[in-house]
Design a protein around this nucleic acid. Structure first.
Length: 280
DNA sequence: CTATTTGTTTATCC
DNA sequence: AGGATAAACAAATA
């Protein structure tokens, strides 16, 4: 489910645990979520540590703990973070695209639970495409330090996009927007929104994009990132109906620009929603 | 029972 | 070598 704005929202769901000690941990170490990790070191490193901070980068998460312990995370398709309180309330576990889905509430999917006095911090992932990793050290792990420039950083430049589009000249732009090495945090719905905003046919090949088209995509990517962080990323509030977002999820949707029926078909290996009238 | 899914990695072919 | 595409992963939902 989560793209950059959803990840930013979920990262805040463990905030009730900030500055507080982890008294115990429960994990499902055999699950795919922990592939390649030393789960014994993870348990040893986090037990008794104080939860200090949450960071995000694109779709990546990094939780910082006292004693040089770091928990890295990726939510995959269905990952989800929540804080459960002993009082019986919980936060962060009801704001789903499909409200009412019981999947995330099922404890069998709670693959990591950090116990604290008064609450539990839960990482749930029914489909197990996500990932959890552990690092011990004075600074963040290397995989984190080597992530590409974020979309809102000064290093995310039009020039960078031009070179990328030239190199991948044969791929449809839809597929290129999903490349995390260049567009960190962009996922399926954000890619479609960017293409709709710029009136770009999703099948356009990288090599067919002019300097002007590249500049337009660069601007739209940054603008959408800011706006998504201000709505979904802030409090999961629903974007305005002027976005493609509210019209894209099922058959029968209409373009918020021209009211033509929207098309949904696989492009670049993913279901793509676009307006055949505006984007051609 | 079948088709679909908002992500990433790996295999395969060119 | 490097790019393009498909399959695999796992589980819920329509």
């Amino acid at each position: 489910m989560p793209e950059l704005a959803e990840v930013a929202y979920y990262a805040k769901q463990w905030a009730p645990g900030l500055g507080r000690r982890v008294t115990g941990i429960r994990i499902h170490p055999e699950k795919r979520l922990f592939r390649g990790e030393d789960t014994a070191a993870l348990v040893a490193g986090l037990t008794g540590a104080t939860y200090r901070a949450a960071h995000t980068h694109g779709k990546n998460l990094l939780f910082e703990f006292s004693g040089g312990a770091w928990l890295g995370g990726h939510l995959g398709m269905t990952g989800h973070l929540m804080a459960r309180h002993d009082s019986g309330t919980s936060t962060g576990d009801v704001r789903l695209y499909r409200p009412g889905s019981p999947a995330h509430e099922n404890p069998k999917h709670h693959h990591l639970v950090l116990e604290q006095k008064g609450r539990q911090l839960v990482f749930s992932d029914p489909r197990l495409f996500g990932r959890l990793r552990f690092h011990r050290g004075a600074s963040p792990p290397r995989w984190w330090r080597q992530l590409p420039p974020e979309i809102l950083s000064e290093h995310f430049t039009k020039d960078r996009l031009s070179h990328f589009f030239a190199r991948r000249r044969g791929s449809p732009i839809k597929a290129l927007l999903l490349d995390q090495a260049v567009f960190p945090g962009i996922g399926n719905w954000m890619a479609d929104e960017i293409l709709w905003l710029t009136k770009t046919d999703p099948r356009t090949r990288g090599g067919e994009l002019s300097t002007e088209a590249t500049a337009s995509l660069w601007r739209a990517t940054r603008q959408l990132t800011r706006n998504a962080l201000r709505t979904i990323g802030r409090d999961w509030s629903r974007p305005p109906d002027t976005w493609l977002f509210n019209h894209r999820w099922s058959d029968g949707g209409r373009c918020p620009g021209c009211d033509a029926p929207l098309a949904r078909e696989p492009i670049g290996g993913r279901t793509t929603c676009y307006c055949p009238t505006c984007q051609s």
